[in-house]
Simulated scan of single mutants.
Amino acid sequence: MQSRQPARWGRNLLLLIAAVALGLTAWFWTRMRTDAVARTAYAAQTACLCRFAAGRPLASCQADPAIKQDWVGLHEDTAARTLTASVPLLAEQTSRWSRDAGCVQDVWKD
């Protein structure tokens, strides 16, 4: 029985760590989600203006300190003239360019 005891401690410790991580994620999920929606909306709008209004290449816009944010990725659809910013598993926002209105953000996806 003594040989099984260390294995139980290791397994129980891993289960405890997983439970704490899951609990913290659940506790802060709303705040993380809200923050991600705001960050992606800002990045999509700013990158759209940089790319389509200013005519800069997307790589140049992505390097701009006003747009570059941790965990926010930018994706361009040249044919539709849209820029989408996303944070994996949390949020995605799109801004569309039109000559008449400039960059207009799609309805926020909550």
Rank of each mutant, 00 (worst) to 15 (best):
Q2M: 12
R4C: 06
Q5L: 14
P6M: 03
A7G: 05
W9K: 03
W9T: 09
R11C: 13
N12R: 12
N12C: 14
L14Y: 01
L16A: 15
L16R: 02
I17V: 11
A18F: 07
A18M: 08
A18W: 05
A21K: 07
L22I: 07
L24R: 07
T25F: 12
T25M: 08
W27G: 09
W27T: 12
W27H: 09
W29T: 00
T30L: 13
R31M: 12
T34A: 15
A36F: 05
Y42S: 13
Y42N: 12
A43L: 06
A44W: 03
A44D: 08
Q45V: 11
T46Q: 06
C48N: 00
C50K: 03
A53R: 13
G55W: 07
G55E: 05
G55Y: 06
R56V: 12
R56H: 14
P57T: 10
P57I: 09
P57W: 10
L58P: 00
A59C: 07
S60T: 14
S60C: 10
C61R: 04
Q62D: 11
A63W: 00
K68H: 11
K68D: 14
W71D: 15
V72Q: 02
L74I: 00
L74A: 02
A80H: 08
A80E: 09
P88W: 07
T94I: 03
T94L: 03
W97N: 09
S98C: 09
D100K: 13
D100H: 12
G102C: 03
C103D: 06
V104I: 13
D106Q: 08
V107D: 14
W108C: 13
K109N: 10
